[in-house]
Design a binder for these strands. Structure first.
Lengths: 239, 239
DNA sequence: ATTTGTATAAAACATCTGTTTGACTCGTGT
DNA sequence: ACACGAGTCAAACAGATGTTTTATACAAAT
């Protein structure tokens, strides 16, 4: 009895109306008129990030978005449809971070590529506008919903392959070398550790994601990792 | 509407009977008689680790343990009471790992202390009998239940402080130095990355937790980290 | 033999869950 | 003027959920 799969994307009768988007929705008379649909997206992003897909109720989302209970089913087919759309924006944001890191590293020596990658990744991870999206993704890691597969292919794999390329360049091995993969895991894991989490908070790790603190952390990770990678490179290659 | 707090440990009428434990429960007549209580503990440990506190239903647990729906409330007061007890065994296991790591490092130079710590931690993390317990804990990191505080104090803090001591010895700083704390985070994050997770699985990271693979991974983490720590130690100390 | 305490079981309870329904309000196109 | 579709709403639905109740079986103590 896991996360309740709805195989077909748009399940029921209605909710296909929104096929006709872009025909100037214009404003309607009802008071505020802030496009209920986008309010639902915005509100649910935060709620899903805070507590996960299953632990957030549609009633809660709708209350927070000042919308009717039926709004989610009307606009997104069902709860999973809404979640899918929220996670798609997360995927896009992550891909944008990937591309930015790639661009920043172009023409640079591998050491500098790694430094810039870590910094940009960390900025993307902790920048206030993206932080909820990344927490969302972190949730998928522990409680995969049917959306995870698409996300891994579109976001994680390109990122890991890029990192593997850098590391391979640094230690002079194939990107599929076990040593390379372990180094990639080491770099990546250090980065995501800086996502806010309740245990760190209880330990008194008061890491404030200000630009300068983020740079500091990025410098640490890059320096730590470059030394680590070089050390690994000095050892004999394995199968 | 989070995980449903039950402030008092043993909430209702019954379930305090088990105060009188140890008076030889003996066996009763009903067929198998395998101590329903311990069956519930065993079964729910796996279920909670797989899907988290909230996503597992008491009916499911009871079905898997071949017990009545009321069994949980009878033996543990309520669902959270069962969870609390399961997590207590996890805490104990983790503390045992801590102690083992400490003993193994006694009288060793700090480099060797770190190597042994990482190995023992990883063994504890991935040994088949403890693996579910650690996944359980990993869940608390993302979705804290009321049980988290006790766990952090009893397990995580001693461990982090021990690691901080080693690192401080290596780079010659105070255990509260920012550089030290960042190194601790680096070491710890690399270790927990080796817990099985769906994203790694989808990426084709087929890490089998055999003893030799675990040793391999521990060697990597220790070597990588020692080089990293030394590099950090070469830099000027910060506030 | 009776009482007492422990353990189990089936059924019921109250609440919460995602979803659906049917009515109603508008603007727009004819 | 009219029909139509888009969007919203209150109410209801069916199923799941944690918990409680009531009844019963049994062993040990009295």
């Amino acid at each position: 009895m896991t996360t309740r799969v709805a195989v077909s994307a748009e399940p029921r009768a209605r909710a296909r109306r929104r096929a006709s988007r872009g025909t100037a929705p214009a404003s309607r008379s009802t008071g505020d008129d802030q496009e209920t649909r986008s309010r639902l997206l915005k509100v649910s992003e935060r709620l899903f990030a805070d507590r996960g897909f299953k632990d957030v109720t549609v009633r809660e989302i709708c209350r927070a978005a000042r919308a009717n209970v039926a709004a989610i089913n009307y606009h997104f087919g069902d709860k999973l449809g809404l979640y899918r759309e929220v996670l798609q924006t997360a995927t896009d944001a992550m891909r944008a971070t990937n591309d930015a890191a790639r661009r920043a590293g172009q023409g640079q020596p591998p050491e500098e590529k790694l430094r810039r990658y870590v910094l940009i990744f960390l900025q993307g991870l902790l920048a206030s506008n993206y932080e909820t999206l990344h927490r969302l993704i972190h949730r998928e890691m522990n409680d995969p919903t049917p959306v995870l597969d698409a996300f891994v292919e579109q976001s994680v794999r390109p990122r890991v392959e890029y990192l593997a390329g850098i590391v391979a360049e640094l230690i002079g091995g194939k990107p599929t070398d076990q040593r390379v993969l372990r180094c990639v895991a080491s770099v990546h894991s250090q980065s995501i550790t800086y996502l806010p989490n309740p245990i760190a908070a209880r330990l008194g790790f008061h890491f404030k994601p200000t630009p300068s603190q983020i740079e500091e952390a990025a410098r640490h990770i890059a320096g730590f990792s470059l030394a680590g990678i070089r050390a690994v490179g000095r050892k004999k290659s394995e199968v």
